[in-house]
Amino acid sequence: MKQFLQGWAKNEKWVNLVLFAIAVVYPLLFTRAYLINIGTLCLVNVLVSLSLNVLTGYMGITGLGWAGFFGIGAYTAAILSTKLGWGFLATLLAGAVMTALCGILVGLPTLKLSGRYVAIVTMAFCEICRALETNLDWLTRGSRGIPGIPRLALFGFRFPKWMQYYVILALVILTMFIINRIINSRLGRGIMAVKDDDIAASAMGVNPFRYKVMTFAIATAFAGLAGAFYAHYIGFIDPSNFTFDQSTIFISMTIMGGLGNLMGSVLGAISLTVLPEILRPLLDVRQIVYGVLLIVMMLVRPQGILGGFNLKHIRQQMSVRSGGEKHE
């Protein structure tokens, strides 16, 4: 394992390139609509899982009601495009901004609380969202849902499925790029310091509350972005897409992939999206097997598949050792 990680750390750029190449080639190799659909849904979930990892992995707050934020993005995009005829670039942006605003609205009064309470707040918020989605009939059409959300299109040209796949792929890569930049900056250090010990962070000049609100806003923005894309892609949304059960799937992906590791989110999201598909022939037993796998995974690697690994740190430690310095 150690050697594997060191090898990975050393060749991280190449590994990323290969993974990127696989992601690009995928729809060319697997042209069946079903497989492209699975690939696209994987990437939507990757985006959600990345956003949740920012909050849960880097900030240390377990986001229990993530489907709520995902749903805000989806509904924002759906309403703006069906009622006001906005184009998808505008609705994606609006979905992200709207969700971030809601995130800030939820975060401002509650982020002074300890993390475990914030987890419950997000859960309650998810249920409140669903109640509103179900009951604000004039806006959301209630439980009948919003049908006919226009597919991604530019200048009247409607994107075929495979092009939508590349759109979400681009969004995922953009998101990873941005999160990576933030994590490896003074802001990222501030975020991790607050997670590790908010009192010490505060004593070192970091305002924990401000960092929590900022992180919450960033995380919710990406969740909203994913939701907005999802609405356009799937074409029909109703409140049952954004339940607490969906939230638990999101958090399972993130934790199983590994907290504080972006590749972990990719892995967690893809495996928990593909797994139910693979298990489909098992019919009734499928969900049971899924649950058992979740348990087994937590028994074998409770910190998640890639949890606790920091390739940058591994690389740095290797550089010192190969540099001839003898300290352990």
């Binding site: 958090i251 969900q287 796998l293 979740l294 348990i295 937590m298 910190q303």
Partner: peptide, 15 residues
């Protein structure tokens, strides 16, 4: 972390 236990209880409830 307790969040791992939480995921396990989710698994148990799914089963």
């Amino acid at each position: 972390q307790t969040s791992s236990s939480m995921v396990a209880t989710l698994g148990v409830s799914t089963v």
